Amino acid sequence: MAPPATFVDSMALQEVMISSPPDIKPTSSDINDAAPTGGRRAFKSTGPAFVPISGVYGGHLLGQSAYAAYKTVDKSFYCHSITGHFLVGGKPKIPFIYTVETVRQGKTYCTRYVQVRQPSPTDPRPFDSEVIFVATVSFKTVEPRGLESQVPPPTELKQWVSNPKGCEIAPAVDVPSWIEFTKLKGIPPSYTAVDLRKVDVEEENKSRPLHEHRKVQIYKPVGPFPPEEQSCLSICTHIYASDRNGMFAVTGPHNASDNIIHTGSLSHTLVFHANPDKLLFSNTNREGEGSQSWAVLEQVGDSASEGRGFIRSRIWDADGTLLATVIQDALIRVRVDNGDKPVGKGDKRKPTFSESLKSML
Rank of each mutant, 00 (worst) to 15 (best):
A5W: 09
A5Y: 12
D9C: 10
S10Y: 03
M11F: 10
M11G: 10
M11I: 15
V16A: 08
I18G: 05
S19V: 10
S20A: 09
I24A: 03
P26Y: 12
T27E: 11
T27I: 14
S28I: 03
S29N: 08
I31D: 04
A34M: 03
A34K: 03
A35L: 07
R40E: 15
G47N: 14
P52F: 08
L61F: 06
L61D: 00
L62F: 06
Y67P: 11
A68K: 07
A69C: 12
V73S: 03
K75W: 06
S76T: 12
C79G: 09
H80K: 09
I82V: 15
G84K: 06
G84A: 12
L87W: 00
V88Q: 00
I94K: 11
P95T: 04
Y98Q: 13
T99V: 15
T102F: 00
V103P: 02
K107C: 06
K107I: 08
T108K: 13
R112Y: 04
Q118P: 05
S120M: 10
P121C: 13
T122L: 10
D123N: 15
P124D: 07
V131M: 04
F133S: 08
A135S: 10
V137S: 07
S138Q: 15
S138D: 07
T141A: 08
V142H: 10
P144K: 06
P153K: 15
L157K: 06
Q159R: 10
S162H: 10
N163Y: 06
P164D: 07
C167W: 08
C167G: 01
S177W: 08
S177M: 11
W178P: 00
P189M: 11
T192E: 15
D195I: 00
L196D: 01
V199K: 02
V199C: 06
N205C: 07
K206V: 00
S207E: 11
L210E: 07
E212P: 07
F225A: 11
Q230W: 06
S231H: 09
C232V: 13
C232A: 11
C236R: 02
I239G: 05
G246P: 04
A249D: 06
V250K: 01
G252Y: 04
G252Q: 02
S257Y: 11
D258L: 00
I260H: 01
G264M: 06
S265D: 01
L266V: 15
H268W: 10
A274T: 13
P276F: 09
L280H: 07
F281N: 14
F281R: 09
N285Y: 03
R286Q: 14
E287R: 14
G290C: 08
S293A: 14
S293T: 12
S293C: 13
S293E: 14
W294P: 00
A295F: 13
V300N: 09
S305Y: 12
E306M: 14
I311D: 00
S313P: 03
T321N: 14
A324P: 02
A324M: 06
T325K: 02
V326R: 03
D329L: 09
D329V: 12
V334A: 03
R335D: 14
R335V: 10
G339L: 09
D340P: 07
D340R: 14
P342K: 00
K350A: 12
P351I: 09
